[in-house]
């Protein structure tokens, strides 16, 4: 077997290995309301997968079906090779959960709680090492109710991974974090996925977070997955054009949308005497894509040009500077 063939075999194996999470045509109906109208998902081992969507889109329902906390109305679901509705203790031990609304065990001390939860698992992490990993070593003797919001969430993460889960659910994990805590949390999640091969399913409202962390993103709108792919793929799918901004000699600010920003910038330079002031090329951001999807959903139109409406809102991230 040539090295090339070996690589091809490996790739094939990686691609066709059984996904950690697989959902086919999952529907959920409450009374006469269809919350999920046929959700398909595949999440692979070691992947950080983000599920985005507005409130009421069915994110929570989808995740709770995968967690085994909710019965679906129809469809096929497999999580770590089992149907979550029939997941036993051995299956539970392979899953970690970090929810946003836990306020439990307030009177327990941090280290005491972690040590206690380690006893439920066959091969737990060392509680002291885990405290260090989430940066709570100094708080080990403190009562849980005396932790700050960010510390509490990090403790929840520690509790979520104490049993060395293969799959970790993170439900809006950084809500209420300050930027530094958020950065530390992102580093932690990436370490878990990259170094330990933990598969992570993240739900979030924070598009920058999804873009920063996720290998792939699915957008759930109106009970269906409307788009799924890498952040870059999603941006392309929206058929959005890049925006080029520059300041002309007379001081006026120009903006132009183009599918080929390089061509435009080159032409600008050809007609200029020197450097162009304030030149900026902005690629379509995930936020553009997201709002574009929502827009298309509420409009019912295909809306290829609809990206312009999102123009004013994308001032924060992913600005690619040229010149």
């Amino acid at each position: 077997m040539t090295p090339k063939a070996a690589k091809a075999t490996k790739d094939t194996k990686a691609t066709y290995a059984e996904p950690v999470v697989s959902a086919r045509d999952v529907t959920m109906t409450y009374g006469d309301v269809d919350v999920l109208q046929g959700v398909d998902l595949d999440i692979h081992r070691g992947e950080i997968f983000a599920l985005l969507g507005p409130n009421g889109a069915g994110k929570t329902t989808t995740v709770e079906i995968l967690e085994g906390f909710r019965r679906r109305s129809a469809g096929e679901v497999s999580v770590l090779g089992a149907d979550p509705e029939r997941g036993d203790d051995a299956w539970r031990a392979r899953i970690g959960l970090v929810l946003q609304s836990w306020r439990d065990h307030r009177r327990w001390r941090v280290a005491e709680l972690l040590t206690h939860f380690a006893t439920y698992y066959p091969d737990p992490r060392d509680p002291a090492e885990l405290l260090a990993l989430v940066g709570l070593t100094a708080q080990g003797g403190r009562q849980v109710e005396r932790l700050s919001g960010g510390q509490r969430r990090r403790l929840d993460v520690a509790l979520g991974i104490v049993g060395r889960p293969e799959l970790l659910f993170l439900d809006e994990p950084t809500t209420g974090f300050d930027p530094e805590a958020r950065r530390e949390f992102h580093v932690l999640v990436e370490r878990l996925a990259r170094e330990e091969g933990v598969t992570v399913l993240l739900t979030t409202h924070d598009l920058a977070e999804a873009e920063r962390l996720a290998d792939r993103i699915a957008m759930l709108v109106g009970g269906r997955i409307r788009a799924c792919g890498t952040p870059a793929e999603l941006a392309r799918q929206a058929a959005a054009r890049a925006e080029v901004r520059w300041t002309a000699d007379d001081g006026t600010i120009h903006r132009e949308r183009t599918a080929d920003p390089s061509q435009l910038v080159w032409e600008l330079h050809r007609h200029a005497d020197g450097p162009i002031a304030g030149l900026e090329v902005r690629r379509p951001t995930l936020e553009d894509t997201y709002l574009h999807m929502l827009h298309r959903e509420t409009d019912g139109t295909d809306g290829t040009g609809g990206i312009d409406e999102t123009n004013g809102t994308d001032g924060t991230d992913d600005t690619a500077r040229a010149a």
Binding site: F69, R92, D104, H105, F117
Partner: peptide, 12 residues
């Protein structure tokens, strides 16, 4: 407070 839910998500 969520104690029951956490234990439900924990094996045993």
């Amino acid at each position: 407070e969520g104690t029951l839910l956490r234990l439900r998500a924990t094996p045993g």
